[in-house]
Simulated scan of single mutants.
Amino acid sequence: YLSGELEVELTPQGTLAEKLRAGGTGIPAFFTAAGVGTPVSDGGLPWRYRSDGSVAIASPAKEVRTFHGRRFVLEESITADYALVHALIGDTDGNLVFNKAARNFNPLAAMAGTVCIAQVETLVPAGSLDPAQVHLPGVFVDRIVHTGPQTKLIERRTVS
């Protein structure tokens, strides 16, 4: 990012979640109070740097409106061609159960993707999951990849 090889748009975490949810439900944009009066709404956040460290692309100012005496910034939704999600358990119909914090963004990302590919650790037959335990219905899942239990081989202790 700092060397100018990537373009990055910084977004508050809750706004990111809502942008994904809105995209997945067909809502093109929404108003939020998060970021009003900051460079998020006023513009000027560096999206891309030049190799010399100067700003090549800065964020534009966003529309701000007042509702009931409070200011809100207009945020556009996010959609994607592909959504890649990871579930602890899934059935052959694509119904998914996520593990702990994986439930925070995976369902939203799946909804926002035109094609959702789910990596599943435990694959069970359709009808095996209690519907009350399903975090994402299979209607949002297009492909399932059964991987088996995952070990985090990339994590290693780096301190003594």
Rank of each mutant, 00 (worst) to 15 (best):
Y49V: 04
G44I: 05
G35N: 13
L20G: 00
E76T: 03
Y82C: 02
K19L: 01
A61T: 09
G113Y: 13
R65F: 00
D93S: 15
G53R: 07
I78Q: 04
V64I: 13
L16T: 00
P125A: 12
E63A: 12
P125T: 06
G94F: 14
E76S: 04
V8A: 02
E63V: 11
G69D: 03
Q13H: 04
V73L: 07
F105T: 03
R70V: 14
T32S: 15
R70F: 06
H68P: 00
D91V: 05
V73G: 05
L45Q: 12
A118C: 14
D42C: 09
L88M: 13
P60T: 13
P39L: 15
Y82H: 06
P107M: 02
R71M: 03
D81H: 06
W47L: 14
V64Q: 12
A34L: 13
A112K: 07
L10F: 08
G94M: 11
V124Q: 08
E7L: 09
G43L: 07
A112I: 07
H68T: 08
L96K: 13
T11I: 15
Q119K: 02
G37A: 01
R103V: 14
C116F: 06
A87N: 01
P60C: 04
D91T: 05
V64K: 07
G26D: 03
G113R: 05
C116Y: 09
V97P: 09
K100N: 08
E7C: 13
I117C: 08
V55P: 00
I57H: 07
I117E: 10
D93Y: 06
F105E: 02
L96Q: 09
T66G: 03
A61S: 15
T15A: 02
F30Q: 02
F30R: 03
D42E: 15
I78V: 04
F72Q: 10
Y49L: 10
A118W: 10
F98N: 03
A29S: 11
D52N: 15
I57Y: 08
V120C: 12
